[in-house]
Amino acid sequence: MRILQIILFSWLISSAAFAQDDETAPATLPKVKPGEAVATFAGGCFWAQEEGFDQLKGVREVISGYAGGNVPNPTYQQVGTDKTGHAESVQVYYDPKVISYDELLTAFFAGHDPTTLNRQGPDRGRDYRSVAFYRTSAEKQAILAAIQRTNESKHYPNPVVTEVAPFSVFYPAEKYHQNYCKLHPEQPYIQSVSLPKVEKLRHAMQGKLKKEGIY
C-alpha cells in the first residue's frame, strides 16, 4: 500500500518547488557538545518521532534521517522504494544528566506502536519498521529490558517486534523534512497520523516535557 506515500510525496515535491533549491539537500548533523549523548531510533514516519522527542526536557536537538540500511546517502525517494534497507529514523542529541537513556526508551515505546511489523498506521514497508539502535552493550541491555517491561505491562495487546540493532551510520534527511510537524501543523497527514502519536508520547512523559499542557 504505497498510494498514500506516493500522493504525500507528490505533495511534498510540489511544496518544495516553492522553497529554495537547497531545501532538497540533506540537513547538516549537529556537532555533539561536551557531556552530550546521542541516541537513534526508528518508529514509523520520522515527522512524529522528531516532534515527540524534541518536546522532552534535556533534548537539545532531533534530526530526521535514515538508518539501518546499506545504501550510502539515500534520498527520500530511494528509501520509499523499500529497497535500501533503511528505516525512517531520528537522531536525538540529549543531556544524560537531565534525561536518561531509559527515559528516552520510555518515550520511544510510547510514541509509536512497537507491536506492528513493518507498519505504523497507514504506512507500510520495512522503511517504517520499529528499531532501537544501540551504541554500547549497556544500551543494548537497556533496550532489551525496556522491551520486557513493555511486554509485561500489557499496554499493547500484542508482543513488541522492535528490532534491536547495532548503530552503524545515520544519514540526515532532506532539509524540508526537518521540523515538519511544527512547520506544517495543518497538513492532513500531520493532523490524522503524526500528532496523535506525539500526544501518546506526551501523555507517557508528563513531568519530563519542556512545556506541559495541551500541545
Rank of each mutant, 00 (worst) to 15 (best):
M1Y: 11
M1K: 12
I3Y: 09
I6C: 00
I7M: 11
L8P: 07
F18D: 05
D21V: 15
A27I: 07
K31H: 10
A37C: 15
A39F: 02
G44D: 03
C45S: 12
Q49W: 01
D54S: 14
Q55E: 11
Q55I: 02
V59P: 02
E61W: 00
E61I: 00
I63W: 01
N70M: 11
T84Q: 06
G85F: 04
E88D: 15
V90S: 09
V92P: 07
S100M: 14
Y101R: 06
Y101S: 05
F109L: 13
F109I: 08
F109K: 02
H112W: 03
D113A: 11
T115F: 06
G121V: 00
G125Y: 07
S130C: 11
A138I: 14
E139I: 10
K140C: 12
Q141T: 12
Q141I: 05
Q141A: 13
A142P: 07
L144W: 02
I147P: 07
K154T: 08
P157T: 01
N158V: 05
N158I: 03
V160G: 09
V164K: 04
F167N: 02
S168T: 15
Y171T: 13
P172T: 08
E174F: 05
H184E: 05
P185K: 03
P188C: 05
S192P: 05
V193K: 02
V193D: 02
S194W: 01
L195G: 08
P196I: 09
A204M: 05
M205S: 03
G207W: 01
K208D: 07
E212W: 05
